[in-house]
């Protein structure tokens, strides 16, 4: 078992349908893109979540959605400020190297990119996918990016590309050469997008992926 340390929740708020932002005081050093294990009780194995705050923030923020058949997230969502959760040390190597890149995310897969973005790191383009704009967490903050593409499969208008992000990528005449592609989201999205990028000419070693499990 990874070593677990108790921390007090400082805030826990719903930010969209089934999506919550959990915060606690930062007691460790981490890099944008890293993950942390969280559990509500020492007896329950921790689950891994990307950190979506910056290394300089006093509090650590974690974005998660409730899995109704899950063990942990229904319990997490019921906790209030002042209650205790257990965390592991930060880990993970999904780190941005600063080279020209596209960031591509769906769902809570946006979390590591939000940490990177809030830390001053920027992509050439961010392609953000969800069913509706409500599923594009932090989309208002990301508007500050030069090239921010909001793809919604069940929404339109207001600067939204109406369609899945795979459709958006497939419609690009060509991909920019010599850039990297950072992907974060469900395994299905990551695999679909990776295959699509390769089909459109990207080399597999240009693609850096983070998966949820």
């Amino acid at each position: 078992m990874q070593s677990l340390n108790p921390v007090l929740i400082t805030d826990s708020q719903p930010i969209a349908n089934k999506a919550f932002l959990l915060q606690f005081n930062r007691t460790f050093i981490f890099k944008p893109g890293q993950i942390i294990g969280i559990t509500t009780q020492k007896e329950i194995a921790p689950r891994l979540y990307s950190i979506c705050s910056t290394p300089n923030d006093a509090t650590v923020s974690i974005l998660y959605t409730i899995k109704e058949d899950g063990v942990l997230t229904p319990q997490l969502s019921a906790l209030k400020a002042g209650e205790t959760i257990w965390i592991t040390q930060p880990q993970g190597k999904f780190l941005f190297d600063g080279k020209p890149s596209w960031w591509i995310a769906t769902g809570t897969g946006i979390a590591p990119f939000y940490s990177m973005f809030q830390s001053g790191q920027k992509p050439l383009k961010l392609i953000h996918g969800g069913r509706t704009q409500n599923d594009l967490y932090f989309h208002q903050e990301f508007q500050a990016l030069t090239d921010y593409i909001k793809c919604c499969s069940q929404d339109s208008g207001n600067g939204i590309y109406a369609g899945r992000l795979t459709k958006y990528i497939d419609e690009q005449e060509s991909l920019p050469p010599h850039i990297n592609y950072y992907l974060c989201g469900s395994a299905e999205m990551v695999v679909d997008v990776r295959n699509l990028l390769i089909k459109k000419g990207a080399e597999y070693h240009q693609i850096i992926t983070e998966i949820y499990f």
Binding site: S186, E188, V190, R194, N195, Y204, I211, Y212, F213
Partner: peptide, 17 residues
């Protein structure tokens, strides 16, 4: 059924989880 791990060389990965 399926897999979440997304390995580049794996056919099961293409089903998602």
């Amino acid at each position: 059924v399926g897999c979440k791990m997304g390995c580049l060389f794996c056919m099961t990965a293409r089903q998602g989880f």
